[in-house]
Amino acid sequence: MDRRALLTLGTGLAVSVLTGYTPAIMATDKHKGPAGLLFADMEPDGLTKTYRKYRLLIIGQRDDGKATAIAQSVVDVLARFLPASRSRLVRAEDTRRIGVLIGTHQQDIGIMTKDGAEALFLAKAPFTDIRNVPLRSIVSFGSHVLVCRTDFVARHSYLVAHTLVEHQDLLPTPADAPSGIVPVHPGSQAYFDPT
């Protein structure tokens, strides 16, 4: 095997490890005991996940102007001050779609209303069929919150929270430490409460 082949294989392996890709393995919930559901998404060979690791996709929603404005501002701030995130806006139809995309591992991170995030966490309407989602909050924007799952990388959560708080003058609503029913993501917790 020549040097180039070895390097290529090594790079491929590194990408697989870094993206946490394991084919056809289902995520399970850890915050409420055994998962009631097994989720699989449209990523048979891991490329969707790899793409989402390469780009930080922030989900907004078309029927909530404030959510979309916040999401767009978050994307802009991250693109400017955390360029390695390669952030990009994704626009869901409504809050239900955000819950489905995050709950079934089709997307990782999005802006929801605080009430919507709590409904998703508790599997209440309109999310009664999306259960045991290991939802976590990263940053609060008052009526809205940036949410993800527990498998979102802690260091990334820390950096996102840090960047948004540092540049909150560029956001339509100031970024702050999240509160409420949805637990704070460990990375975000480390930023807001380093003790």
Partner: peptide, 25 residues
């Protein structure tokens, strides 16, 4: 095939229809 890492989409009950047969409950 899924266990072997193949490109397989296993049953997914969220948004599955008919819901009384294929949905979460």
């Amino acid at each position: 095939l899924a266990d072997a890492g193949g490109a397989v989409l296993t049953p997914q009950p969220v948004d599955a229809l008919p819901a009384d047969l294929c949905g979460v409950d």
